[in-house]
Design a protein around this nucleic acid. Structure first.
Ligand SMILES: NC(=O)c1ccc[n+]([C@@H]2O[C@H](COP(=O)([O-])OP(=O)(O)OC[C@H]3O[C@@H](n4cnc5c(N)ncnc54)[C@H](O)[C@@H]3O)[C@@H](O)[C@H]2O)c1
Ligand SMILES: NC(=O)c1ccc[n+]([C@@H]2O[C@H](COP(=O)([O-])OP(=O)(O)OC[C@H]3O[C@@H](n4cnc5c(N)ncnc54)[C@H](O)[C@@H]3O)[C@@H](O)[C@H]2O)c1
Lengths: 209, 209
DNA sequence: TTCGGATTGTGAATTCGGTCACAATCCCCA
DNA sequence: TGGGGATTGTGACCGAATTCACAATCCGAA
């Protein structure tokens, strides 16, 4: 939507910069250098500057970036200028933990629906939401303008849930199940514990990370 | 440890191939083509072949790969030929969910310790383990030869926990807290929900993924 | 035994991301 | 008002990762 397209790798780092900035702001820092951000995010300072240059930012040479302005720039670039509705499907161990997580309450992401298929789970309260039957999901999504779906069901049904989410118009899916989802258009991000552990396991032997 | 070094990007995909293979094996498939794997993992078939070529595999031209042999090759490459001890620090909502997760029981990763600092949590049972005081962690780790640490504490103390883990000799850390950890040598992987959501948020606008 | 269809393995080309290095610019102080 | 120290913005380079394309090879059928 904006002028230039931001490289994928840069997009993935913007949230880290933003978070670092929020901490710095809380500490009362008004001006921040690329070097300072780089240390906090564990990257090269030149990379920070190049990343920020895609936002059309203007730091001041010899001085650095105004931390509050830079924050708003990054938020704009990420589209965090409005609210996003999120649903979680599969309220088991993990789903319930995610639902309880209030770390993005501060952000623009709001959990507006929890869904499960198990009659024993449906109706129970998690946080301040009541778990609803997954059959109500399509209507709810349409009504509440939900844009993001989080899948925390067993792997066996994750694909089915994803398809359903997509049919409801959800274009962004965060998948915690151990499956690679096949979708039409949706953007899927995958978070998988055992994959992460296996990668770590590899580098335990081949240390040179 | 093996002859060639495997590119990082390839290492990150190997667990996906492995999982796809396990499913195919369960379905009774003996021979698998790069094309077939590619579809399941959502990547280019040439990439699959190039990835597998780093393992020194031998598929058969005109036929494909023997799925069971390929599986063992990947397991060998990843070092999944022995067991790994894992501890989880911070047994709150998320930590407890991870502790209950048995998805890597089938794998070679075994959770051998749960630690918390809250007296109300210490002593409680999660899965078949009892949560212990985090002060016992160093001794336990030394005794049980733990190699991987999972951090699920609040962000404020994650750095401290990471430092402690590293001092105990843990070289691999999976960090669920919203912080970028500063470590000496350890290999850190970060899993952060709000980062993921922000990335998804970006691509909601700039659709072309 | 030969042929056709299928599939691998991999060099070459390409795209993408990261790093370097430095001119351009700014602030502050003397 | 001028100079020194600091820091940005970015072009040029480098390396990693992806994709392409095709010869090499195999199986099975006729
Ligand atoms: N728990 C973890 O720590 C953890 C970690 C990593 C990955 N995962 C993955 O996350 C997923 C959930 O893990 P979990 O431990 O919470 O499992 P769980 O069994 O506790 O929860 C799964 C929930 O999904 C519900 N469900 C089943 N079918 C459904 C459907 N069709 N529609 C809606 N809901 C449905 C179940 O009723 C259950 O409540 C699994 O795929 C697991 O592999 C979990
Ligand atoms: N819960 C989620 O779904 C979720 C999702 C993404 C990220 N996270 C992150 O994971 C972390 C944990 O989230 P949570 O919801 O489970 O929080 P939580 O408050 O439920 O659990 C944190 C636990 O850590 C323990 N703890 C505190 N200080 C400790 C110390 N010094 N040593 C050992 N244990 C200590 C606390 O006693 C508590 O039991 C947070 O950093 C959060 O940002 C959580």
């Amino acid at each position: 939507m904006n002028s230039v397209t931001i490289p994928k790798a840069t997009v993935a780092r913007l949230p880290l910069y933003l978070h670092a900035l929020e901490i710095l702001a809380a500490e009362g820092t008004c001006t921040v250098s690329s070097e300072m951000l780089a240390r906090r995010v564990n990257v090269n300072a030149a990379k920070v500057r190049k990343d920020l240059s895609f936002l059309g930012t203007h730091g001041v040479r010899g001085v650095g970036y105004d931390s509050s302005e830079l924050g708003t720039r990054i938020r704009e670039a990420l589209g965090l200028t409005r609210d996003f509705g999120v649903v979680i499907v599969g309220i088991g161990n993990l789903g319930a933990a995610l639902a309880n997580y209030d770390g993005f309450g501060e952000q623009r992401f709001h959990i507006v629906g929890l869904y499960d298929a198990d009659p024993g789970t449906i109706g129970s309260k998690v946080g301040d939401l009541v778990v609803r039957d997954v059959r109500h999901m399509p209507a709810d999504i349409a009504e509440n303008n939900v844009e993001i779906g989080i899948i925390a069901t067993p792997a066996a049904v994750a694909q089915e849930v994803a398809t359903q989410l997509e049919q409801c118009g959800v274009r962004s899916i965060l998948n915690f199940a151990q499956t690679v989802l096949q979708v039409e258009q949706a953007d899927v991000r995958r978070v998988d514990l055992s994959t992460e552990l296996q990668i770590l396991g590899y580098y335990l032997r081949h240390d040179q990370s």
